[in-house]
């Protein structure tokens, strides 16, 4: 027994070192698995409020850019007004086909909420942004986040007043997207270079050209379809596979986002539950 105590005393520093290492590494690997860490919610409130103070200063210098973004977005929305479109033929008559639609019970599937970005990182390999909206304002994990220019990421963690968003520029982020022209689906991920993201699993039968738009696919169940993701920069034709690997230029400029929309899919858990149970059933 005495020897045990002597041993502990002799190597106390080394043992303390090991204890701290194990503690730190358990924080790290638990966080990667569940996106939940000890004290993370409490810490989020503190770091969020500091981030917010910093962003009020930064915000002022970005006003011009924000204005341009919002004008461009307004313009795009104005173009889609029904008043802008006219039926070509005089004899034509617009008839709303109500067969497919139960007019008494329309369902709004996606709800949009505006949110201000108060903190962001861009220079690491695991980039997050912090939004000044949290569980008290109805934000939950697994909600999509888009900017006026295109998609940004997914909410992974919330506290009362702040939420963390894993951005497209995160090594573990993946989202299902499709080519606007043709509709072939693939998966977007990031390989660490901030100027482009990689789109995989586009079959070689698809007609792709550089400059083509890539938009979100409704099958991702986080985003409504048709939101810009990026444009094709480069097509890599790997002879050994049946799929293209495409380099995309993300449409969102992650360096100056100030306002984003958080999108709540009201049927997300509904769909997820069904998919999970189907998966389990045929495993």
């Amino acid at each position: 027994m005495r020897n045990v105590f002597l041993f502990i005393r002799k190597y106390s520093n080394f043992l303390f070192f090991l204890v701290l290492q194990v503690l730190a590494l358990s924080f790290l690997f638990r966080y990667n698995n569940y996106h939940q860490a000890i004290f993370m919610n409490a810490a989020e409130e503190i770091t969020g409020s500091l981030d917010q103070r910093y962003s009020t200063v930064e915000y002022y210098f970005k006003l011009k850019k924000i204005n341009e973004q919002l004008t461009a977005e307004n313009l795009r929305l104005h173009q889609t007004f029904r008043e802008n479109y006219e039926v070509a033929g005089e004899g034509g008559k617009l008839v709303a086909d109500t067969v497919m639609m139960d007019s008494l019970r329309r369902i709004q599937k996606y709800f949009w909420m505006g949110a201000r970005v108060v903190g962001s990182t861009v220079s690491t390999q695991t980039n997050f942004i912090t939004l000044h909206r949290g569980s008290d304002q109805g934000v939950h994990p697994n909600m999509g986040v888009v900017s006026p220019e295109g998609i940004v990421g997914t909410v992974v963690n919330v506290s009362e007043n702040f939420s963390s968003v894993m951005t497209l520029l995160h090594r573990q982020y993946k989202v299902v997207v499709k080519l606007k022209n043709g509709g072939d689906r693939g998966t977007v991920e990031w390989e660490g270079n901030p100027t482009f993201v990689t789109l995989r699993d586009i079959p070689k039968s698809a007609k792709v050209q550089t400059g083509d738009s890539v938009v979100t696919s409704p099958t991702s169940s986080l985003f409504p379809g048709g939101i810009m993701v990026g444009t094709v920069l480069e097509i890599t034709d790997d002879k050994s596979s049946n799929f293209y690997t495409l380099k995309l230029k993300p449409s969102t400029n992650f360096f100056n986002i100030e306002f984003v929309y958080v999108i709540a899919n009201t049927q997300y858990y509904d769909q997820k539950r069904l998919e999970d149970s189907t998966h389990k059933k045929f495993q």
Partner: peptide
């Protein structure tokens, strides 16, 4: 022991800003 505890808290503080709990703390320790 003092050095290591200070380093642990210092690293963990940065980690909470960066959303990577434990990563910088481990390196600092």
């Amino acid at each position: 022991a003092g050095l290591m505890s200070v380093a642990f808290f210092f690293g963990l503080t940065l980690d909470y800003f960066m959303h990577t709990p434990g990563l910088h703390a481990a390196a600092c320790v």
